[in-house]
């Protein structure tokens, strides 16, 4: 099936007239999300995010390769978003469609170009060896709002991931396996999250976390990527009806609240996960890192 079945005219009209009476079909308020659940796998670097019926699985893995010759001091970081018919029969195998291109481009801008991951820390020997970090996003169920779910899964998986510990003596590199040495966390500089807004009635009605049906009926969308400090990484508006500046401002304010909530969710779940792994308080003993007293950043 090359494309998603479009909702019927009746369905669309019903949804829109309900929205005009301030009612969403699932009974949520306009700025509410469906229930979000985040869980981590047994292995490091797997995160499973569910927003309502939408479900995305992120998997981070790494290997040692040669860095690009023009970027000798940087490691390699790849985000792969290949949609498969698991998520929806409309996704074809081996052919990029619009959804996939937009999704990968948005994640690229949000995570990679905003410098969320410090790629220099992935370098082992300049120009010779570096880590190649690969994040695979598997969309398991597509029921709208793929962008927010994917971004949340990706950030959570990156925070959960541990790369193998290394030791460098001149030109000799030793890479320690998981059994030999406790693996180390990635150095993340900030955690950006995507928040998408859907517009109806030429910008009169604004919804957060649109479901698939609502996405089909919308006139336009804005995706705002922001970290918890309110720093905007990108704003994307691909066509659709024009939106005035003021509503853009209210959207960014709403996005900040949402980004803070996402951040809190990820931190709490990570802390729970770490606690369940830290049986008998061994983790602190295993870590090769020294504890450095650090001042809290402002904000």
């Amino acid at each position: 099936m090359p494309r998603e079945a479009e909702p019927s005219t009746n369905e669309q009209a019903f949804l829109l007239s309900a929205l005009r009476e301030n009612i969403r079909l699932d009974g949520r308020a306009f700025d509410h999300y469906r229930p979000i659940s985040l869980s981590f796998g047994d292995e490091y670097g797997t995160a499973d995010v569910r927003i309502g019926k939408t479900r995305v699985l992120a998997k981070v893995s790494c290997e040692v390769t040669v860095p690009y010759p023009d970027r000798k001091f940087d490691g390699i970081f790849i985000i792969s978003t290949e949609l498969s018919p698991i998520g929806s029969p409309a996704f074809e195998v081996g052919r990029q469609d619009q959804t996939e291109i937009l999704l990968s481009r948005l994640l690229e801008k949000t995570i990679r170009r905003s410098g969320a991951l410090d790629t220099e820390s992935l370098c082992i020997i300049a120009g010779q060896k570096c880590f190649q970090l690969r994040a695979d996003l598997h969309v398991l169920d597509h029921d709208g709002n793929l962008v927010d779910a994917s971004c949340l899964a990706l950030v959570a998986a990156l925070l959960h991931f541990r790369r193998p510990d290394i030791e460098v003596h001149g030109e000799d590199v030793t890479i320690f396996s998981l059994q030999e040495r406790e693996p180390v966390k990635l150095s993340m500089q900030h955690q950006p999250f995507c928040v998408s807004f859907s517009y109806y009635d030429s910008g009169q009605l604004v919804l957060q976390d649109a479901s698939l049906l609502e996405e089909h009926c919308r006139e336009g969308e804005i995706v705002i990527s922001m970290n918890r400090f309110g720093e905007i990484c990108q704003i994307a508006k691909y066509g659709g009806t024009p939106v005035d500046g003021l509503s853009m401002l209210t959207a960014t304010n709403a996005a900040l609240q949402r980004a803070k909530a996402f951040d809190k969710l990820v931190k709490e779940t990570l802390a729970d996960d770490e606690k369940s792994r830290d049986m008998g308080g061994l983790m602190a003993e295993l870590s090769a890192e020294n504890e450095r007293p650090q001042e809290r950043p402002v904000g």
Binding site: G41, D42, E43, S84, P85, I86, P89, V93, S177, Q179
Partner: peptide
Amino acid sequence: VQVTLQVTKEPTTG
């Protein structure tokens, strides 16, 4: 009949 198989866990690298 379209069957998609997603491997979600593989043996540990150890």
